[in-house]
Design a protein around this nucleic acid. Sequence first.
DNA 1: TGCTTGCATTGATGTCTGTCGATGCAAAGC
DNA 2: GCTTTGCATCGACAGACATCAATGCAAGCA
Lengths: 148, 148
Amino acid sequence: MSKQELTVLGQDDQSAACCPGLGGAPLDEGQAAELAKIFKALGDPVRLRLLSLIASRAGGEVCVCDLTPAFDLSQPTISHHLKLLRQAGLIDCERRGTWVYYWVLPAILDRLSMFLTTAREREADAVAGAEAEGKADAVAGADAEVTV
Amino acid sequence: MSKQELTVLGQDDQSAACCPGLGGAPLDEGQAAELAKIFKALGDPVRLRLLSLIASRAGGEVCVCDLTPAFDLSQPTISHHLKLLRQAGLIDCERRGTWVYYWVLPAILDRLSMFLTTAREREADAVAGAEAEGKADAVAGADAEVTV
DNA sequence: TGCTTGCATTGATGTCTGTCGATGCAAAGC
DNA sequence: GCTTTGCATCGACAGACATCAATGCAAGCA
């Protein structure tokens, strides 16, 4: 039911070997398209909450019957969002009797996190280098707006 | 030109204090909407490449005139994507004479990375706990598909 | 066998988004 | 002043997306 859905990061995809991270060389079109597909899956409040509900569950897996009531949406809509998360490789599922259980696949979360982290480190270096020339206040101001 | 555009993470937004990360308590609707806005900005190949081009630039900033030729798109389209990245709080810009320079704001990248990392750690624990009951092979198979 | 439950799929519809040409606007040079 | 250059904004349009009701399908139960 599920293995075939991992189209984003197929194991035979040579271009998926590894993205350099934002700090390295600029992404080529293939890498960008692949990453964008995953980020797009995360770019919806409903899907983000679904992922959050699954990830925060003790035991690591959740029955759909526990997810649907948490939203003010129809069952087909929830099913549709779960399918998109599955196609992005962020979750997987398994049927057990009457119920279907979903769990998070940590590998891609890892990859995204690393991609963003290397970006930050590289960028922080660049900013440190340019801090003496009048751009520092703007960056510092932006920092103050977010309590990381 | 730029400070007012940071609508996603306004400094007076109490709900933006900090998201718990995927591993903590499930996201509420406000947090999910806020994070989704940022992920959605990253959910486009063109914007991802733009961000990558800016982040990987020595000096940390890039003139728009250097970005536009890198794409097979019209100048208004590039400008549109840059605006969305700016509204998401991922980049900022400044006009200098005839040219406009963009640079990356690392704070939100940090926050996203942390959000995803805590998710992974929490999820990995859960998987480790459930590894003995037949779900392990599916997770291991997914891991094998990504060379993180 | 027939009924019920849980979830996925289909088809339709309204909304959002990416893209472009045209235009506006600021800065620099003549 | 006028012209040119660099970039943002506007208006329009095609394609993508979120959502729903209806339907299909598998599993359990009477």
